[in-house]
């Protein structure tokens, strides 16, 4: 019952988020981007790894719409395949981070006591640190690569989800219907899963959606440092990293992947804002 009404509510709100002009443009762009990422091999006009040294650093034009890089690889095809890397890494990382953060936060908020204090001490510890520093510490431990990038992003945003979930649970626990359920003799697992979580989940999902944008920037930054995706895997950050050497010769190698990151993250933020408005949860995002 609870979950069915939640579904209907969520569907309605997402519909409402799309209803505004900004929401429609941003949401439409994101859907398009996901489709591009999924069907990248069929959409990309060239093989992303095919080198052609005779045609290196070619300016945007025909047939290479966004030009070619220092190995003569098609920039457009690499940006399209890069969407795959960026989106999948960020989404996977945030999914891990959300699952772990929700579990920790819900347990801390529900059980309280020493467990809560221990979890929150660790979480507050990472809270004041810039995400790039947390990610770099993690990359230092397990070495460069996409797997460590994924986990580094997951760790960097864990504190956010834990804090938010805990704040929701602590607030809900004081509600009359939860007290009533406790008095009726329901088990803690039943209360948590059937009553608390469905009511706590909306803000966490919205923050998760916004965090995917931050995750894309973080993935690009690590890639740019040469600590993320390794060649020849196309990633927006890694493309810009190899492009810096040719900054004067072929600026398009840097401009277009960066533009892809910027536009994607702006769309994520705008759509997230519309979702917050549609779900009417701005108050619940504060104080966490």
């Amino acid at each position: 019952m609870a979950s069915r009404s939640l579904d209907a509510f969520a569907r309605m709100s997402i519909g409402r988020a799309f209803a505004s002009g900004v929401g429609m443009v941003a949401g439409g762009f994101l859907i398009l981007l996901v489709l591009v990422a999924i069907f990248a091999p069929w959409i990309a006009p060239f093989d992303y790894a095919a080198q052609n040294l005779m045609n290196a650093n070619a300016a945007p034009g025909w047939p290479h719409l966004l030009g070619t890089d220092e190995f003569g690889r098609d920039v457009l095809s690499r940006v399209i395949h890069g969407a795959r890397t960026s989106l999948s890494v960020s989404a996977t990382a945030i999914a891990i981070s959300m699952a772990a953060g929700m579990t920790l936060g819900a347990a801390a908020g529900y059980f309280g006591g020493f467990f809560e204090r221990a979890v929150m001490t660790i979480v507050d510890l990472t809270w004041s640190f810039p995400d790039i520093l947390i990610a770099l510490i993690f990359v230092a431990i397990i070495g460069p690569g996409l797997t460590s990038t994924t986990f580094a992003i997951a760790i960097a945003y864990l504190a956010q989800f834990t804090r938010l979930t805990r704040a929701q649970i602590v607030r809900l626990k004081r509600e009359t219907f939860i007290e009533a359920t406790i008095n009726l003799g329901a088990k803690p697992s039943h209360i948590l899963l059937k009553h608390l979580m469905p009511n706590a989940i909306a803000p966490v999902i919205v923050v998760g959606m916004l965090a995917i944008g931050d995750g894309i920037v973080l993935e690009a930054t690590l890639g740019f440092f040469g600590l993320g995706a390794q060649p020849p895997t196309p990633s927006w950050g890694a493309m810009m990293s190899s492009g810096t050497a040719q900054l004067f010769l072929s600026p398009w190698v840097i401009i277009f992947p960066g533009l892809a990151v910027a536009v994607t993250v702006i769309a994520v933020n705008l759509f997230g804002d519309e979702l917050i408005r549609a779900l009417d949860i701005r108050d619940r995002l504060r104080g966490a």
Partner: peptide
């Protein structure tokens, strides 16, 4: 503010250099 929190810092730096 939106641009400042979304545009990757290194990309902005590269554009400024350019």
């Amino acid at each position: 503010i939106l641009l400042g929190s979304t545009v990757p810092g290194f990309w902005l730096a590269l554009l400024l250099i350019l």
